[in-house]
Design a protein around this nucleic acid. Sequence first.
DNA 1: ATGAAAGCGCTAACAA
DNA 2: TTGTTAGCGCTTTCAT
Lengths: 333, 333
Amino acid sequence: MGKPITISDVAARAGVSTTTVSHALSGRRSVSPATAARVRQAADELGYRPNQVASSLRTQHTHTVALIVPDIDNPYYPAVTRGLHDAIAADGYFTITGSTDGDRETELGFLAEMVRRSVDGIVVFGFAVDEEDLTRVVPARIPMVVLGSRADTETRDTVESDDPVGVEAATRHLLAQGITDIAFVSGPKGRGPGDRRRTGYAQAMQNAGIVPAESDLVRCDYTVAGGRAAVGELLARPVPPRAVICANDLIAIGAFQAAADADVAVPDGLAVIGFDDIDAASLVTPPLTTVLNPAYETGRQCGRLLMDRLVADYDGPPRNVSVPTELIVRASA
Amino acid sequence: MGKPITISDVAARAGVSTTTVSHALSGRRSVSPATAARVRQAADELGYRPNQVASSLRTQHTHTVALIVPDIDNPYYPAVTRGLHDAIAADGYFTITGSTDGDRETELGFLAEMVRRSVDGIVVFGFAVDEEDLTRVVPARIPMVVLGSRADTETRDTVESDDPVGVEAATRHLLAQGITDIAFVSGPKGRGPGDRRRTGYAQAMQNAGIVPAESDLVRCDYTVAGGRAAVGELLARPVPPRAVICANDLIAIGAFQAAADADVAVPDGLAVIGFDDIDAASLVTPPLTTVLNPAYETGRQCGRLLMDRLVADYDGPPRNVSVPTELIVRASA
DNA sequence: ATGAAAGCGCTAACAA
DNA sequence: TTGTTAGCGCTTTCAT
């Protein structure tokens, strides 16, 4: 029980060389059926487990993919993780995960450590690292998929959900009901996906020939409290908007609270649309109309891009994958 | 750029042996300051990254911990993951994660693969594997922490949240308000944590000298739809209960819907208490009173137990850690 | 304070 | 079809 069994132990017991054991078990070279059987039996009897570390050192492949996210405990990322996992598990790859709090030093340190560990591929949700950091710290030989807007799409494989398209659909959904007085609640300037999402709103309004007032764009933190305050102010105006589209679901749920505060009914007094489709979206009252942020599919696409290079030997130019969002119509709009 | 830099490259450039480079960089043997400086400079100039796989093969330590969960996309597990991560990151350990869908073959396969990869420790949320599987597939030399009720507490390090204590507190919270007509909504018989949680309810009732009617225990799936149906039936009785304690938050949110269906107000007509404190618990209307399932702390304790054996060289008998739950009083009860 | 050399366990030329 | 041998890149005795 003390010493692990090695390939030599198996070779000795089967009366063959280690080479033959290796090939008998991996099937990478033909071995006579009789020998193969003897080897397998010896391996079974000894309870042999090939040492993957030794194999990795020799082959230079670890069958491991690193995933770097800001916070594994934020519901969006577990879904990505699951998608990635499902896309690579079939090829025998596993995921090693790092949660960085979006801190640049932590991101860089984790990237460096993954390089040391010879991971075969990397998926980065980089909040703080920039293109220059990536090229400096990750050797070009390691395939990498970059998410988030800081990626250089010319030189990197990237995956991105088409948030503007989803918000455009959301806006049209309101316009189709004759609602034109629509405000957009974005996140803090320059932080997070709010402004990118807003472009979909702007586009739809423009297509409808409507020019939103400056005052129809407001900002707050990506939180329930932020949404409640921001939409509260909106509703206190002499002419409050008839609908709000929010940069994420938490803000939208804050909008519910603001409406309750102001004795405004949702959706009749105020229509509310969120973004993400978090678990709570279908559980609140009324159920929230929102844009599905396809986290699982995003993770899956990351895995596909990586596997294409690692197992399918794709060696072409960088590819930029866009993952479709989808408007989920519930009761709030 | 093609070839990675190895320790020999550094040694050559610094004009010393690889031994000295190793020691200069690791500090495991004293090196003259002058030499150390030359080595560090050479390493810097070449952009040397020690190969962790080679190091692992030599030292037999991978600084990697495997985490096996049924579904990384279920909000409970990411929180555990985060706790584990935070407990081991300081010591330079990383986590490799597998999601098994609670399938026995998948669990076994993943365990075997982790053994092949020489992980230094394992945390298992095993739904399907039993004690015998674990001993068979995981060598005794690899420290392991087992969660979930199938673990043999005599021989294994285990971590478990004290769900019954939390539910007992929840029950007392109702009793203190003079509410005695309390039903408990558990999960399907023998599946999941429902029945263990119910023991806390039974205990509190007994302590109060109340014998719940047989009919005050009902069962349903751990879902919103399940809760809605089960509590719907409860409310349709000639004498409906004045309160329900639910085996998880989803069931409790289903109870909200059932109350709305029956035109019963929460909490005045029906008090509702859940379990877990999922994100949605504070977002629904009214905010849900629930028992906090300390997922993060659970993960952290797993990490501590492992690090004690891996880093602090603890070699004593198995330890069984109980993580405290906590009643979170909001508006629903 | 430093180095030579062995070897962790495996795979893959190359040879037979 | 099978074996011999040389490493993958590092750490660690053992010597000096």
